[in-house]
Design a protein around this nucleic acid. Structure first.
Lengths: 257, 257
DNA sequence: CGTGCCGGTTCATTATTTGAACTCTTGGTT
DNA sequence: AACCAAGAGTTCAAATAATGAACCGGCACG
């Protein structure tokens, strides 16, 4: 791993649940020496990518990141376009909806609309979702370049629950089913007791760039409701894709083997 | 400059006006060798910090940045809290309002509410503002740690227009005036024909963490209107600071020499 | 008042980064 | 259709930056 990769690895240790970390914690979790960790943090903080709390001496993500994110968002308004559709979908289904964008080989959760129900699924912003084992991942693969699907599925796939599909053939079957239907389903593939449906958000080339997903407690779901959620998430994604790309887009299905 | 600094320098070349750049352009503007530039870009893209357009081969900021920014925003909802106040202030004044956050020794513009008038000031998201020469900068300095003010003002200050105040004494006078009034004024200090007022957004320790500013065409401004804008921007900032910190905060004025 | 953990620092050793020179491709010009 | 210019991307010996064991001083706990 190069120096740049290490610096970004440190940034990736900050999560919604643990947004502030001390030097020793960062060193321990990254596996980098304390001196190395510190030097990287100093470089990052000089450029505004991390900030250090003056009194607790702990580090957190810095304003420089927000600034760049806003530049990106001004150019490519993924959140601005998708957020209202996600909110509407959440209200319509009464369930937690999360929006993901593809980045560095996985899906990153960039927005969440929490269900208002007492019994609901909680998803953290910034969470990284694997492409197998989540409804979002399968929906993404179903509308990705075949090379990407192949290279992903050729590596060993870890299990997250006892229900995670890890076999190449099983994943490909789920992908083909999702491509045919237009949305994917996943029951407890990533977390016990959670059922999700997801559909792809397409880029100008017709391939997926992200996903929208509805996540429900499994106990609430039956086949009819799952299908209704599937149709709803597909509609929302179609609308988002249209707004993002300005014009209709020919979808790229993965129906072949 | 360390490797990490160079990587971030590359990221900082992407702006709202030029959100996509080719390898040679990046190499030229950064002054790094083309091979070096490329290696940095590859590292960055492997981690989702930049993306490469498949057909044009140009680079742009990546989704990994959005992801981290969302984690930060979930922890510290600067934009979420400030944006509505900025919008209201823009509607109230009829002028362009911009929100800045302090980062790496300068103010970074993270949100803009454009005036709806035909003759208006345009500000780009992501723009870096110097601490002298903008109303925002002076407002920030007026509510900053004295050490920060001193170290800033001890370095040579560039002029952006013929009206930019660059002398240590002049800057300190403007800072003291802003501290006494609660807001700052700047006439054409950064761009010709632009008049601005600004007030600080305060952190939990009572020192400024950002600013809110109203920017008008100079032709529209007289003393009375400037004062009304000043009071309005101060009110908005007070409200934001309160919401951000949860409780009243003792302000830290820079009234001493 | 000793022990452990924290943040932070030092400097000889080591590994990564660097950049001149190269190829390959594209698009425009004569 | 041959030429030129400019772009993206690659190679490898030389130069430079990153590394980490051992260190300091402070603070909290028993």
């Amino acid at each position: 791993m190069g120096t740049v990769g290490k610096a970004i690895f440190l940034l990736d240790l900050f999560t919604a649940r643990e947004p502030e970390l001390g030097l020793s914690e960062l060193s321990r979790r990254s596996g980098f020496d304390k001196a190395t960790t510190r030097r990287l943090l100093v470089s990052l903080s000089q450029n505004g990518f991390v900030e250090q709390d003056v009194e607790s001496r702990r580090y957190r993500l810095g304003a420089g990141i927000s600034r760049l994110a806003r530049i990106r968002e001004a150019h490519f308004p993924f959140l601005q376009i998708s957020t209202p559709a996600a909110r509407e979908l959440s209200l319509q289904t009464g369930e937690t909806v999360h929006l993901s964008e593809f980045s560095a080989g996985a899906l990153a959760t960039v927005h969440v609309e929490q269900s208002t129900r007492a019994n609901r699924v909680n998803v953290d912003i910034g969470q990284i979702l694997p492409l197998h084992g989540t409804a979002s991942g399968i929906a993404f693969l179903a509308f990705s370049r075949p090379e990407l699907v192949k290279s992903y599925v050729d590596h060993p796939l870890p299990a997250f629950t006892s229900h995670t599909i890890t076999g190449r053939a099983e994943v490909m079957a789920a992908v083909r089913a999702a491509a045919a239907r237009g949305y994917s389903q996943s029951s407890q593939g990533y977390e016990e007791g959670v059922f999700s449906v997801a559909a792809p958000i397409l880029g100008p080339d017709g391939y997926a760039i992200g996903t929208l997903s509805v996540a429900s407690p499994l106990s609430r779901i039956d086949d009819g409701l799952a299908a209704r959620h599937g149709e709803a998430v597909m509609d929302a994604c179609r609308q988002i894709s249209l707004s993002l790309n300005g014009e209709p887009v020919g979808t790229r299905l993965n129906l072949a083997s």
